[in-house]
Each structure stands twice: as C-alpha cells, then as structure tokens.
Nucleic acid binder design. Structure first.
Lengths: 270, 270
DNA sequence: AGGAAAATGTTAGAAAACGAACATACTCGT
DNA sequence: ACGAGTATGTTCGTTTTCTAACATTTTCCT
C-alpha cells in the first residue's frame, strides 16, 4: 500500500534543511505539539527526514522528541534562534561528554550528579533496570530522575538557589557528610593548574564535601572551561580521578592535567 | 495469577477522577503536550485510564488527542473556560481550605508545607514580597516555589518516593531535626479520634519529626479524610493546634476534635 | 567536471501505543 | 446491606510509529 505519492509542490516552501528546521521549531512552539506526519506533509518531505530533524533539534535542546511527533520542551521558553544555534554546538560537546561519562558508571555503588547541563544530560544514559542509586542536589536532575523508573533517587536538601537551580549550603553539607559515594560526576565553572573552581561559596562548600566523601571523582568539563575564570576554588587537580572533555583541549593543558595524575578522556564531538 | 494486588494507597496526589482530568488539562495547557505515560505516572493510574480521560476531554473540546499523548487544542480557541470553571469546582473544597490556611500564615518565622494537593494549592497564597522561609519535602511544592520570587526555599533531602512525589526517610528526619519551624501545614490520609494517620512508615516518621520541631501544627484535611482509613499513625489529636476542613464534617467529629483541644476551622465551599 | 560528504528517500523488522473486551473495585442511592 | 452503574486495571491483538541499514539524490569543494 506504499505507492509513491508524487507531491507536486517541490520548491516554494523552504528549500534548505535549516530553514525547514526553523519552521519545525516555530510550528512546535506555536502549537505545543506537531505530529511527524503533519510536518512531513507541510514541508513536503518524508517522515524519516522529519524524524531526523526532530532528533537533531532535541539534541540541541530546542524541542522534545516524543512518540508521534515533536513537542515543546518541558520547561523554559526558547529564545532567539541565534542562541539556539549557539547552544546546539555547545550541547553536542556536552552530550558527547555525557555519553563518555556513562562508560565510567560503576557496576554498583551510589553515584552523585553535580549541578549543570552536562550532568543533566548524563541522566539519559543511566541504566533503567538495576535500581541505580543516584544522589543529587540539582532540581533539573531530580525532575528528570523522578520521571524514570527503577532508579533510587536521593535528594540532598538545603537552601534553594535559583541561579544554579540547586540546593546548597550547610544543610546540604551535613546531609552529604552522612554518605559514602562511589563515583561523583563533578561540574565546574573553570579549571586551571591550581584546581577546579566555581562561582559561589555555597556551591564551593557543597562540591568540596561531595569530593570528600567520594571514592572516585570524575570532572565533566567542556574545553571552554579551561580558559574560563571563576572565583571559588573547590579542590586541587589531584583530587580528581578523571577529566572528560572535548577535542578543544590544548595539548599543554592536557599534559598539565596528566602531570597532576589525572586521567584525561577526550571525546570526539562528531 | 489472580491474587489480590495489595496496592491500595494511591491517594495523596489526586483522588477523584475529575480532579485528575483537571490536572491533565492543566499540565497539557502548561507544557503544550504531555505523553500518556508521563500523565499515567504522575497521576498514579494506568495508561488506559489516561487514554479514556483524554478521549473524554477531547470530546469536550478542551484538548487534542494525538498519538502518544494529549496536546493543547490547535491555534487558540481555548474556550475551555466552561470546563476550566467546572474543573475548579472539583478542587474547590481543597482550594477553600488552602485559602483559609493562608490566613494562618505567621507574620514571620519559617513555615513548613507537607506533601499533598492541598498544601500545593497553598503555594498560590504565599506572600511574594517578604522573603517567606518555606521548608518542604514535596517535589511539586518545590517546583512551584522555585518559579516564584522572594521566597526562601529549603528542601528537606532524602529518598524520593514516586507515589507521594516527595522525599522521606531517615535522612529527611535528620535534616528536620536541625530546624525550628514556626508553623507546619500538615496533611494526612485519615483522621479519627485516636489521631492523624498516613499510609507509609517513611511518611509517618517524617511527618512525626516535622510535628516535633514545629511550634504550631495546622492540619489541612478535607472532610473525606475523616471517614477514610490508613495504617500508620503520625500523632495524636492533641499535637494539633488547628484543623482546617470543609463543610462536610459531621458535628460529632467536630466536637470530637474540639474536645481534644483542637481549634476547628470550617470553610464554606461556595 | 569529478568525487567526497551530506542529505534524503525507501524498506523491513522492532518497538510503542492504541482499542476492545473482560474482570475487578469503587460509588451511590435505596 | 444491597445492587446498579461507574471507574479502573489487565490482556491481547491491531495499528502506528520508530530505528537501522542501504539506495539515491543533492551539495560542495577543488
């Protein structure tokens, strides 16, 4: 029953793939949801092409791929397309880092996910079938994990900070002190020869305590973090077991890390 | 395999079907689209029930049924006000209770919001301009509060429980033990002469500790809670300062409460 | 042009969602 | 307390969508 329907309107609508994707985003933003078939008919392309578009756009965090079509992302509204494009390149590196990080998940034992977008992406790669224990103080991570099954989620309480969408502070430190974490996936605002840095004191004391109670500390940091600068030191480089980053890391900085005894994993950003 | 599946207590989040449908409409309106599985998990019902709900709501013209879930109706025409009003009518008792509870908010001092729909509704009535300190272990409450400004939000950590969408357990108890709460807005599954009850042990120990560290305990319970039954006792009636409920409370039960020294506030459900 | 790389279409098998029918549980009025 | 009507969960077969792999077209670079 799959005869070839020769759709006549070829040009006309939007010729380039980028234009088409922009239109997909626009339609999905406006209506909240569009079916794959709808979009395919409107654009005059096949379902498969639309699916590929949707998947790309989802990776970029611009919309959500759901069974049957595309939906507006869960939280937050989409800004200008310029920012969306910029975010796309960033996210690709981060997703690659998250995927590499998933290879470092321990067979058993609790893992802790720090705040940040990269650790949030790691949620997608967690095993769904072995009741992994996950500890976090990041609200987006909590929300993501609360929606998937067979994961034992522990929230670190504390004072909420809207800037980082996470809980931090003395109460958080006290909660961490009672824990033993196998693997910590740490995030940071900047990294240099003298250590790992973040922006605020409450974040710093929280991260520091997480590092203290963790057997293995894996830093997830895209290459831009190595040229950034932030105020509060979290820990020295030697506290880290591994760093996972993308290709943008210069060889000097890489050898710097290795000299400090840190294993460096560089992942291809496709 | 036709044994009796003992999985009774799935109240807490949404009890009546109309309330559930109202929530479906609300979630779909907010996010533009929700998958069937998402909704089923959030409401604690099966996929089939959600599908039936969606179909009904589509017939009513309130939302659109699409493969995979429910979407906001096409381009505008959201004249769902008729149903929106009706939907509001279902939660009216709870909303009236929440509104009355807002009158009991202390001028200063920390307030704690227990889990449950009524306490969630109370969020709408919190003052937005005086940095009220709010303590909670309910994920929906956290999400609601994280989006409003000038509220100091503290999360009680602990193990996540999907049934109640909240954190509970020993870690939670430990976190509470460090606090001093002015007013606690408590929820429960049932209330009778011997005290306040909830469904699970981890909830019970958490609530119990909240009661212990609070100067004033206000129970928010619609009248159906007085004829319900649940297993785990939280506290005796004398631990309560006030009970806020709706008109459905029988006079015998009312005098029972008053005899125990509890102030009873009955609000009109319009 | 020529050829590599990207984009698109096609197909078939896998996965997910759907709908009907039945069984069980709950509600409500008498 | 009882029975009718409603609501919900479960199973199973059907329909739809998805994914992966390959074929084809287009684009782009030299």
């Amino acid at each position: 029953m799959t005869s070839i329907t020769v759709e006549p309107y070829h040009l006309e609508v939007g010729s380039s793939s980028e234009e088409r994707r922009a239109k997909i985003v626009e339609l999905t933003e406006n209506h909240g949801f569009c079916t794959t078939a709808e979009l395919a008919r409107i654009m005059g392309v096949s379902d498969m092409t639309i699916r590929r578009d949707i998947r790309k756009l989802e990776t970029a965090g611009v919309l959500r791929s759901v069974h049957g079509g595309a939906a507006k992302p869960r939280s937050g509204t989409l800004e200008g397309t310029a920012l969306a494009e910029r975010a796309q390149h960033m996210v690709e590196a981060k997703r690659a880092i998250a995927e590499a990080a998933a290879q470092c998940l321990p067979a058993d034992g609790a893992v802790a996910l720090d705040t940040g977008t990269t650790t949030l992406l790691l949620v997608d790669y967690l095993p769904r079938d072995r009741g992994t224990q996950v500890i976090t103080s990041s609200l987006p991570v909590i929300n993501a994990l609360s929606e998937i099954g067979d994961v034992e989620l522990t929230c670190l309480g504390g004072t909420f900070h809207a800037r980082s969408l996470s809980f931090a502070g003395p109460a958080t430190v006290a909660a961490i002190a009672e824990l033993r974490i196998h693997t910590l996936f740490l995030s940071a605002m900047s990294v240099d020869a003298s250590g790992v840095y973040c922006g605020t004191e409450h974040d710093a004391i929280t991260k520091r305590e997480l590092v203290r109670v963790s057997d293995e500390v894996i830093l997830l940091a895209d290459s831009t973090k190595f040229t950034a600068s932030a105020m509060m030191r979290v820990c020295p480089l030697r506290a880290l077991s591994k760093v996972i980053t993308d290709e943008g890391l210069s060889s000097e900085r890489r050898s710097l890390l290795e000299k400090a005894g840190v294993e460096v994993i560089v992942c291809r950003t496709a």
